[in-house]
Amino acid sequence: MRATPRLVDLPPGATATVQELAADPGLRQRLEALGLRPGQNVQVLRRGWWAGPLHVRVGMTELMLRRRDAARVSLAA
């Protein structure tokens, strides 16, 4: 079992709060710039098939991000 849940594990429709971004500076900034920063609520709208990207909503912004990148976003339990 993982200690903290990650964005990549969130099922479609579920909402959670971002806890930490364990990403390199480039990705972290990109995520933060698009509003995905600690303390924000994030909802997974759908997950692409064949390990495809996630479609998520943060605030008023909708994003797609790869699972690899979503694995770097940890959520408050």
Partner: peptide, 9 residues
């Protein structure tokens, strides 16, 4: 390169 794109309305 990570891929994080905005999906605009």
């Amino acid at each position: 390169e990570p891929l994080v794109l905005e999906l605009p309305p």
